[in-house]
Nucleic acid binder design. Structure first.
Lengths: 247, 247
DNA sequence: CACATCAATAATGTGCACATTTATTCTTTG
DNA sequence: CAAAGAATAAATGTGCACATTATTGATGTG
């Protein structure tokens, strides 16, 4: 009955957005390859960074772990997964199988509006490549495959595609040599051409070979992951309210 | 040396298994269609049922929600999802797209050992159908599609396949009339035949039509979900230790 | 000096108390 | 009597204290 605690901040509604914002921020950092594989994400440090309680961070980290974006080792902590050679094989095979299914449907159901979006995206990719903007090229290269699946308008397929892309992004940042481009724009262009002609066999082959190329390149050099100061890669989350700083 | 820790009573290792056991038990109940759509799963009741703390239940429920197996409505509770007609469309399209990709790879990489397992499974399905064991038929029918994806030996693909199956299981238990069989064994047999002959076009068509049939049948009758006493469907989880009953 | 042991420290895991929100019942009033 | 509102009850959300486990560093021993 007696109030022991100083008055807590009210309005529990903003908290949901807070969870989502932190989740999105960490996801973004992983997807953009800003978090090196093997990096530990200590709950206390993250709580301080985002200025929230540790339990809130815990919840987000465990959710990311359930989606295989992070790895929780009991009593040890949460880490950015350090993909093994076998992980690379599994993820890229999943990419190939998955995109094969997408292409099989796209070839049958595609319309002009989808093709227009793909063409526009190819133009953006070529532009980034011409400017030599590697970060943007990497981002657009992944976005190309998301564009394919999003064209189907199926939230389940889009969600799984994003999980896969999130995992392969870490692999790229680990293994990929810095100077090479991730996805050759030409290969994306050829795939779009095959789709336009509704050539299933050709489109399947191109997609398969495309992922083969990426996987092959990854396995060429085995970079050694270093330790990392992760604090610099996170951007402040936009929240309506902050946690009280009572200590 | 003085004993600093007076009570090394419980090992922390059992807790992980406990989480997994509860997670598996709720997952099983959903997959087997024992939990009616719309059923609320109150944290306090579940905690009492499994004889664990409420926070432990919360963690499991939120994990299941992250996988879309359950639905958490903030400040309201956790529910077995009540799929809309649009959800049915999305899930079964995902099934079709996904299995198309699997088939495209299976046709190229399948070997005798895989075919033998598929044949054995078909025999089991026919046997269950002959015996009129509907529950077993439903279970085997779902297991058939898992067998296809598991044949690829890819954990990512298997995981996603199970998530999809979990969601469609709820839909079947909601919409499906009790007397009809879920998957015609004949359709599974025809698909296996096409795989054996490595006939990609035929296998793709059969798989697609198969899911079309299931989805079509679901939409025929719109059953009204009733409330349910969920306690009866859970089996006790096998744990090495129980929580103290101090009250 | 290498190595094992053990204390000290830091990080993760968990139950609990309490706040907050939602649902229900009861009361009041036009 | 019905409907609105207030009081009550019940369920979910959250921060915190403390237990447990891992890591680090110190220390002694062969």
């Amino acid at each position: 009955m007696t109030v022991k605690r100083p008055k807590p901040i009210r309005s529990g509604k903003g908290r949901v957005d807070l969870d989502a914002a932190i989740y999105a921020e960490i996801s973004r950092a992983i997807l953009h390859g800003q978090l090196q594989a093997g990096t530990k994400l200590p709950e206390h440090k993250l709580a301080e960074l985002f200025d929230v309680s540790r339990e809130r961070i815990r919840k987000v980290l465990h959710r990311l772990a359930a989606e295989r974006r992070l790895e929780v080792i009991p009593n040890r902590g949460t880490f950015v997964p350090r993909p093994s050679g076998d992980d690379v094989r599994v993820i890229y095979q999943a990419h190939r199988v998955f995109e094969a299914g997408i292409i099989e449907l796209l070839v049958r159901t595609m319309d002009d509006s989808i093709m227009a979006r793909l063409d526009a995206h190819l133009a953006a990719e070529r532009d980034a490549a011409r400017r030599g903007d590697r970060a943007e090229s990497v981002r657009l290269s992944g976005a190309f495959h998301l564009l394919l699946v999003d064209a189907l308008g199926n939230s389940e397929l889009s969600r799984f595609s994003r999980e896969l892309l999130s995992r392969s992004s870490v692999m790229v940042s680990v293994y990929e040599p810095a100077q090479s481009s991730v996805c050759a724009v030409d290969e994306h262009g050829a795939l779009v051409d095959a789709l336009r002609q509704r050539d299933l066999t050709q489109a399947l082959a191109l997609s398969r070979e495309h992922y083969d190329h990426i996987e092959q390149r990854l396995k060429l050099d085995q970079a050694v992951p270093r330790h990392q100061d992760f604090a610099a890669v996170f951007r402040p989350v936009a929240v309506t309210e902050r946690r009280s700083r009572s200590r």
